[in-house]
Amino acid sequence: MSKIVVANELEVIERLTTEISKCAKRAIVESGVFRVGLSGGSVLNFLSKAIPRIQTDLSKWKFFFCDERYVDETDPESTYGAYKIKLVPQTELQLHQFEPINVNLPLAECAADYEKKIRAEFGASIGSIPEFDLLLLGMGPDGHTCSLFPEHALLDEKTLLIAPIADSPKLPPQRVTMTLPLINNAKCCMFAMCGTSKAEMVKRVFVDMENLPAGKVSPKNGELLLILDAEAGKYIQK
């Protein structure tokens, strides 16, 4: 795990821009496509400033969602809907580069369908695990990441790569989420966080190593990168 602490949010975005650019260039050289998993919330706010600054062929990027609320894209809770409004108009990205969930299916079928789409994108057979180039992750005040919550049964999921969750403790209750086997097969997982409100949980998860969901992110053959401003990273040993 690499912990990078910079002065402020502007520098977090600058470093995020640099690190995403490195991942993109490497992936495009190796395979001709850059496959990314997106999260909502503050991650979108950072990316809406970072991605327009990246010098790369954006047409070779393909986006999936690390988790998504089981709502229509017009709903304010929709992560895909938020990216459609806040990120796409600032860039040359096209909507066909984003793979949303199909909320017209029942929840469990929706999750299974999304896993099938991810497997098809990577040409991955049943039993093998796709390898995302980059997952951009967030962390909640309870230490959750994606829609993997403390003490939830999905933390122990070994078979499903995309799982339905009908009892999320955070609204809305119905979601689909990547599980740890898929997350931890990524080439790179990044957390970017700012603000003093993140500091205590950053310490608990990444310094004290408490048994919390975000702390279970540990790519087995890849890199884990934390990019923090001085407030969020104030307990990180320099």
Score class of each variant (00 low, 15 high):
Lys198Tyr: 04
Gly140Gln: 08
Glu92Trp: 03
Ser147Thr: 12
Thr145Glu: 00
Gln90His: 09
Leu95Ala: 04
Ala163Ser: 12
Gly138Trp: 12
Gln90Arg: 15
Gln174Pro: 01
Gln90Ala: 13
Ala111Met: 08
Leu148His: 10
Gln97Thr: 05
Leu160Ile: 00
Arg175Val: 09
Cys188Asp: 02
Ile162Arg: 09
Ile118Gly: 03
Cys189Phe: 05
Lys116Pro: 00
Asp133Gln: 09
Asn104Arg: 15
Leu137Met: 14
Met139Tyr: 13
Leu95Glu: 15
Ala163Pro: 03
Ala111Ile: 06
Gly143Ile: 12
Phe149Glu: 05
Ile85Thr: 14
Pro181Val: 13
Pro150Phe: 11
Ile126Tyr: 10
Gly123Gln: 04
Gln97Ile: 06
Lys203Met: 02
Cys110Pro: 06
Glu99Val: 12
Lys116Arg: 15
Lys187Ala: 09
Cys189Asn: 11
Lys117Leu: 09
Ala108Thr: 13
Ile85Gln: 11
Tyr83Met: 08
Ile85Asp: 03
Met201Glu: 03
Ala120Phe: 05
Phe122Ala: 08
Ser125Tyr: 02
Lys86Gly: 00
Pro181Met: 13
Lys84His: 11
Thr91Phe: 04
Lys198Val: 07
Asp75Glu: 02
Ile101Trp: 01
Thr145His: 02
Met201Asn: 05
Ile165Asp: 06
Leu161Met: 10
Phe191Pro: 02
Val202Thr: 09
Ala153Lys: 15
Glu109Thr: 08
Glu109Arg: 11
Thr91Glu: 07
Pro169Cys: 11
Ala186His: 09
Met190Lys: 04
Ser78Met: 03
Asp142Arg: 10
Lys170Arg: 13
Phe98Leu: 02
Ser168Met: 11
Glu77Thr: 01
Lys116Leu: 04
Ile126Thr: 13
Ala186Glu: 05
Ala192Trp: 03
Lys203Thr: 00
Leu136Pro: 01
Ala124Gly: 08
Ile162Asn: 00
Asp156Cys: 06
Thr179Gln: 08
Ala120Thr: 12
Leu161Cys: 12
Leu180Gln: 07
Asp142Asn: 14
Lys158Pro: 01
Pro76Asp: 10
Gly138Ile: 11
Cys189Ile: 08
Leu137Phe: 02
Pro76Phe: 10
Leu137Asn: 06
Leu135Met: 15
Asp167Tyr: 06
Leu182Lys: 14
Asn104Trp: 00
Asn184Arg: 13
Ala166Arg: 14
Val103Leu: 00
Leu93Trp: 04
Ala153Gly: 06
Met201Val: 15
Lys187His: 12
Pro100Met: 04
Pro100Val: 06
Ala111Gly: 09
Gly138Glu: 09
Glu99His: 12
Glu99Trp: 05
